[in-house]
Design a protein around this nucleic acid. Structure first.
Lengths: 145, 145
DNA sequence: CTTCATACTAACATTCATGTGGGTACTTAC
DNA sequence: GTAAGTACCCACATGAATGTTAGTATGAAG
């Protein structure tokens, strides 16, 4: 094997830094965006908002396990990225609505399809895990040899 | 507003814990799976493997910024979950191939569509961010009032 | 009058994720 | 002989992520 492989990989990363976005390149802005969308709470917020406008407390109840701090932080992040729109009614007691922007709706579409697939396939996945677990006794093969 | 809203939210989470998977429920197994798939390196590994079988070092070069430790850890996680298949040729020097399982291919499909959309939409997203940043001078509205 | 709810922020504590450096057993290239 | 490549693991250290608690101004419900 010539070093062509390695060189090609590096060249590809370089090229993409220019004209086209590439999440595989660490410095590409798309990498950060992806991480926000796929962050622990980011995915769930996007999925929740995909079903329509929500208020803060409503999201908090909907998404099991989020703390106020994390929800607020995640929403701000997604707002900065342009995926979520925040509408403050300026009333008191506070009333704020969160909704997806057009871009957010597109992103959310892909996210819900992943999440939906996961939920639908859970049984199959758990089966596969169980089957795989019993069929992999070669974990210590190297140590014993 | 009656407390029906809150009760309904809780009831929904409870219900889903039984028959149907729901990522919104913190204890649902699907939540953990989702986090593995959408983890910092998990998404990228899945996306990389979606283009075919790779060797360890090949993945490491492809995915900008991964350390060996994280790549190994991520691959093991995905293998345990049943999304990735590891084939050790048992040769020396070591030679190990990583590929997606059928389930992994399905999951990867959704992931690449998200990633692909992100890469294609990056310009539009950056524009939206810039536009939104200039149009939101009401950050200190509450403090000044 | 007390409590709860709203939508947060700030400070502090902690846990988890991640990076770093070193090591293994062996082969190939220089 | 020396350096590099392979596919990792282990111990240690650090930083980022997350949780916890307290607090704000106000209205509605009990």
């Amino acid at each position: 094997m010539p070093p062509i492989d390695q060189t090609a990989d590096r060249a590809r990363a370089m090229l993409d830094a220019f004209g086209r976005a590439n999440v595989m390149a660490a410095e590409c802005p798309s990498r950060a965006l992806l991480q926000h969308l796929t962050s622990r709470w980011g995915v769930l917020v996007m999925a929740a908002l995909a079903t329509g406008t929500h208020r803060f407390a409503q999201l908090r109840r909907r998404i099991g396990g989020v703390s106020e701090r994390m929800l607020a932080q995640t929403l701000q992040q997604l707002e900065r990225d342009g995926f979520v729109h925040r509408h403050d009614h300026g009333e008191v007691p506070p009333r704020v609505d969160y909704a997806l922007t057009p871009l957010g709706q597109q992103a959310a579409g892909h996210i819900v399809s992943l999440v939906g697939w996961l939920e639908d396939s859970l049984p199959a996945i758990l089966e596969a895990q169980a089957a795989g677990a019993t069929a992999s006794p070669d974990r210590s093969a190297r140590a014993s040899a």
